[in-house]
């Protein structure tokens, strides 16, 4: 079942918070995974693994480098669900 953008953002924020210890409120659409949220590549792949599980999508490795911001990830997941 497809999620709304807001549902995806909230779900992703929970995953990021679990992985990094950040507050979910800090995980905003415009935030950069690397520059703002200080997420390294291993953590990013962990987040991707959990996101695939949670949203029932496939995020190919070659796609991950294009996901610079939280908004990029929300858009990709939304598109993959539709």
């Amino acid at each position: 079942m497809a999620n709304t953008d807001q549902e995806i953002l909230e779900g992703l924020a929970e995953i990021v918070a679990e992985e990094t210890g950040l507050d979910t409120a800090d995980v905003l659409l415009e935030k950069s995974f690397t520059d703002d949220l200080d997420i390294d590549s291993l953590s990013m792949m962990t987040i991707v693994t959990h996101a695939e599980d949670k949203f029932g999508v496939r995020i190919p490795d070659e796609e991950v480098k294009n996901l610079a911001t939280v908004g990029d990830a929300v858009s990709f997941i939304k598109g993959a669900q539709d």
Binding site: L42, M45, T46, T49, E52, D53, R58
Partner: peptide, 10 residues
């Protein structure tokens, strides 16, 4: 394999 966590080895 797709569900294997990246931190498994470390």
């Amino acid at each position: 394999a797709r569900r294997m966590l990246p931190m498994t080895v470390p």
